[in-house]
């Protein structure tokens, strides 16, 4: 059902005027990595489109509200439109104050492997960005030496290599409004960027305030130490 809303979401992308996204796949990297990293909002918006089309039907992200999308550059009207296109468990359309919750699916539908909540999945895994990317691009045919458990799929990015989730992304699952080619690595990289934002939405603000605070305290420390040395020298 959610695939129907993808064009609507795509139309809402703010960065549609921008040219093709810069190549972050060779070598694989994300703008949010590193001490001074910040989110690439175009990538995070594309990641949200993939998330909403491919992940949200089974996974929840209960720490996120639809109103939080405004932080990604969506206008309140666009965020409200996205929310309204999502059906709650009781059939009513979601509002800005609802959390990211999939429609009620019985646990038995997942073969005993309940899809985890994705709000903080990337901070809860070492190297979360790479983890999600490797998992989404890690589906291959099982080697001959491996006997898969019933209902499991072979995935080189998953601990133990046998995962209960069928391959969610195959490439060209969405149409990006900014013209970026929706290859599997691009989609995986974008949804990884979106989940990084979901896990740590304050990263941009934290780094911004951090630079100012550290610079201020650096000069304060130098002045304070110089003052102290001058005062103590006068006792001699």
């Amino acid at each position: 059902m959610r695939r129907l809303f993808a064009p609507l979401l795509a139309a809402g992308l703010l960065f549609s005027a921008a040219a093709h996204a810069e190549d972050t796949l060779t070598p694989l990297h994300w703008q949010s990595q590193g001490s001074f990293g910040s989110f690439d909002k175009a990538a995070v918006q594309r990641g949200f489109l993939v998330y909403q089309s491919a992940c949200a039907s089974c996974h929840s992200a209960s720490a996120l509200h639809y109103r939080d999308l405004e932080a990604l550059g969506f206008s309140p009207e666009q965020a409200a439109g996205i929310a309204a296109s999502v059906k709650l468990a009781n059939g009513a359309p979601a509002t800005l104050d609802d959390t990211f919750k999939p429609a009620a699916v019985p646990a038995s539908a997942f073969g005993g492997a309940l899809p985890p909540d994705l709000s903080t999945i990337e901070s809860a895994r070492p190297h979360g960005l790479d983890y999600v990317y490797n998992l989404l691009t890690g589906y291959t045919a099982a080697p001959a030496s491996v006997t898969l458990l019933p209902g499991r799929f072979y995935n080189t990015g998953y601990p133990g290599q046998q995962i209960a989730m069928p391959q969610p992304l195959k490439g060209n699952d969405v149409v990006y409004a900014d013209g970026t080619a929706a290859t599997l690595p691009q989609e995986a990289s974008d949804v990884s960027a979106f989940l990084a934002w979901s896990a740590d939405p304050n990263l941009d603000e934290r780094h911004e305030i951090g630079v100012r605070a550290v610079l201020f305290l650096l000069f304060l420390s130098i002045i304070a130490i110089a003052t102290k040395r001058k005062i103590w020298r006068e006792t001699a």
Partner: peptide
């Protein structure tokens, strides 16, 4: 003065 520098 010393305490202030230490705090900074």
């Amino acid at each position: 003065a010393q305490t202030f520098a230490a705090f900074a």
